[in-house]
Each structure stands twice: as C-alpha cells, then as structure tokens.
Design a protein around this nucleic acid. Structure first.
Lengths: 222, 222
DNA sequence: TAGATTGTTAATCGATTAACAATC
DNA sequence: TAGATTGTTAATCGATTAACAATC
C-alpha cells in the first residue's frame, strides 16, 4: 500500500506525528478542512514544509480548499503504522514502568500494554492496574502468547542492554528505550530512545542561554 | 564563561547530552582519555561530527591523546547548564507525574523535584515520596518559596496550555511538556516537548517500514 | 470566472563529512 | 623523531524555503 518506496526522513516522521495529533484535535471539534498555511501556523512551521512533508503520503489535497482532516489523518496513520493496534510489554516495574503500564493515553492510541515484567522478586506478583508483574523468566512465553510487537525498557541504565537483548531474543520488533544509555541491537530490530533526562538537560541549556541573552529557540518538532 | 557567543544548534545540543552521558559512564569506570573516533563509534557518529561539535565548547583536546573525560564532562556540563542544580515542580499527580516526582535519576543529575501539584481535591494532601500533593492555588507560593526554575507538565492534553500559563505567571523560566499538545508561551520562557506517544509512533513507523523492506534507521540522537 | 491553494521544481540554507595542516 | 589525533577549512549532502504554474 502506498505509492512511495523511498524511506521517509526522520525529520518528516517527527512532524507527521505532530500533524496527526493536530488533525485528531481538529476532527474532534468538527473541523473538516485545513490549509497547509493554517497547519503550519498551529505548529510554528512554514506552509512549504507542510506541503513538502505531505508529498510523502499517498494522499492529495484539493486546490483552494486544502486538506480534509479525515483523509489526512488516515493517510498519516497508515504511514506511521498506527492504523492498527500494537501489543507492548513494559520491562521494569519501577515508578516509570508502572506509570507507563497504567497510562491511559497509550491504549487510547493503539499501543496496548499486555504485560509488565521485573527481575525483582519483591515486585513479581504485584498488581499494576489489570496486569500482574511477571518474572523476567516468563518473558519469551509472554511475548509469544500475547504476540508482543514492542518492548518498553524502563530499567536502570546498567540493565538496559541486557534487557534489550532478552526482548530481541524473545522476538519483539521494536524497542522504546527509556534508559539514559545507548543500546545496540541487531539490524532487524528498531530502537527509539526517549531520553527524558536529556530533554531536561536541553531545557536547562535553553534556560541558561536564554538568560545569557541568546535567541530563544523552542525545542521540539521545529 | 565560554568564548562563544553564538547560539549552539539544537542538533549539537542533543548530541552533547549523549556525549556527557557517555563521559560519565567512562569516568565511572576509570577511563581518563577518549578520542573523537572512539566516542563517535560508541554513539554511531563520525569523528568529524564529534570534533565539529566540541568546537562549540570552551575546551580543547590534546593532539595524539584525545579528550580528557573529566575536562570534557565539565565543559559540556557548563554549556548544558547542569553544573548547577535546578529546582523543579511537577504539575499533575497522575501516574506519570508521580513517577517523575519519585524518579531517582532526576535528582541525581541535578534536577531536584521540590513540589508536586494537582487540581483534583482527591489527590491534594496525598504523600508522594517526601512530598505532599499541593493545590494548584498554591502554585505561585511554592514557586517563590522554593525558587523553582522549571515546571514539568504532566496533565492531560486539554489542560496543558492552562497549566503552562499558570506556571509562566508564577515565574518559572522553562517548561518540560509531557502532554501531547503544542503549547504556546511568551518569548522569555523556553519549552521542550517530550512527546512520548510520538516516540511510540515513530517506533511504529520504523517497525512497519522495516517489515516493508526499507533501510532500518535508528532514531534518536543520530 | 477569479482567486486561493495545491503540487512541484528551483534556490537557499544549514548540517555533516572529508581532508589535511598543525601539533604534541 | 614518527605517528596519531586534534582543530579547522572546504566539499558534500540533505533539508527547508521560495516561487510559481496547475487547478479546482
């Protein structure tokens, strides 16, 4: 599906996630059409960038009217792979892991948390919402039975690589790495790093340089 | 401090956070020197990029030896503004907010969570580690008394802009936005968006396009 | 129709990489 | 010293922006 066989640059993918979020908000408030200029204004971009980005989609706008929010949502969802649901496990039942397992937003957007695991015997058996913390020894069984696609790594940095290896061996296709460390996996598995501490450090730099009188630049999608 | 008055590009700042994290790991294991090539290999970059990035610092390497991990850590910390500690409040005492308030990593890296607030009267008064959930009405008092520099927004998307406005009015200099929405603030305040759901969507796209046979590309710092 | 907005090509800008003289 | 690695300039690459013909 789709007429485009070239890989889409990461910078474009990041903006597509923002467009999708914006489309969903607008559709919820009954807006049916949006122009590239309006969308650009909402997100602090240029209309050129928006139109150039949408060229990667198997979807066309309409001269003089713009883009239909429904059609655009659908086309972006397809490219992002969020037109289907994904089965996810969380590894690490600490504060962050538990928060992720309980977080409503993920399920609402098609990422269903099907399990949470930890290696700490004090945590195994604990209830986390509808889930029960399982032992790491059960990982490959859980991955097979629940047909898990992705793993969220929410363990301390020192354990992240080992957990990544276990998840890959168990057969997941993608990893979301919350740990502040670079993990290395074989080529057929993809990794996205979230690095929340790094975000705080970026913020810290912006505050410092803002105070020193440099141009304030918003970090994020732009 | 620093001989460089030009703003450092965001792409460089993101990599500096990764270099710093790597330096800290290496120093902890007693490594005193590292070459641009070694550092590049660790993070999947080229040595040119590393040397070019370090040119933004008020720090020099040594021919034939490379960079001293201690000195480099210090220089990056200065530029990132993490050579000092920051006082932070979390707004939103849901799963994510609580996880952030309890998360050890932040304090360990100089981001001290000094308060957590919520507008839900069922949550106000609850203990979160050493903190007690405060009412939003107390925000400006807390910000002044604790000399808060930054706010972490961990509320639903619909409330994010309002919370951002309140934090700015109370006098914070920076916002870390966990909500999946674009917030707008006045020029003297800086914002970093974390967009965890967006990260999951990027991952989803990579898994889908990987399965479709496209080049697997690691997302994250590279 | 007239005018607004797309799709797309060309121009610009910035970031990454290559190359190499300087240097310890 | 000889050789490795930096600092830095130049070349390349890719991403963003501008411009405008096509079009509804």
């Amino acid at each position: 599906m789709g007429n485009d066989t070239k890989a889409i640059p990461g910078s474009v993918i990041k903006r597509l996630t923002a467009y999708l979020s914006q489309m969903q908000t607008m559709r919820a408030s009954g807006v049916e059409w949006i122009s590239s200029q309006e969308l650009a204004d909402k997100l602090g971009l240029t209309s050129s960038t928006v139109r150039q980005d949408l060229l990667h989609l198997d979807y066309s706008g309409v001269s003089k009217r713009g883009y239909e929010t429904e059609g655009l949502s659908g086309a972006i969802s397809t490219v992002l792979g969020v037109d289907k649901t994904w089965n996810v496990v969380v590894v690490g039942a600490g504060n962050l892991g538990v928060a992720f397992a309980m977080h409503q937003d993920f399920g609402r957007r098609g990422f269903n948390i099907r399990g949470i695991l930890d290696c700490d015997s004090n945590k195994i058996g604990n209830k986390v919402g509808a889930l029960t913390v399982k032992s790491m020894a059960d990982l490959s069984v859980v991955v097979k039975r629940e047909r898990i696609d992705m793993g969220i790594i929410a363990v301390p940095a020192g354990a992240a690589q080992e957990v990544a290896d276990l998840l890959v061996d168990a057969g997941v296709s993608g990893l979301l790495n919350m740990a502040l460390t670079h993990i290395i996996v074989s080529d057929h598995v993809v990794v996205v790093d979230t690095r929340i501490v790094a975000s705080l450090q970026e913020l810290s730099h912006l505050v410092v340089s803002r105070r020193a009188g440099h141009i304030p630049r918003r970090a994020g999608i732009c």
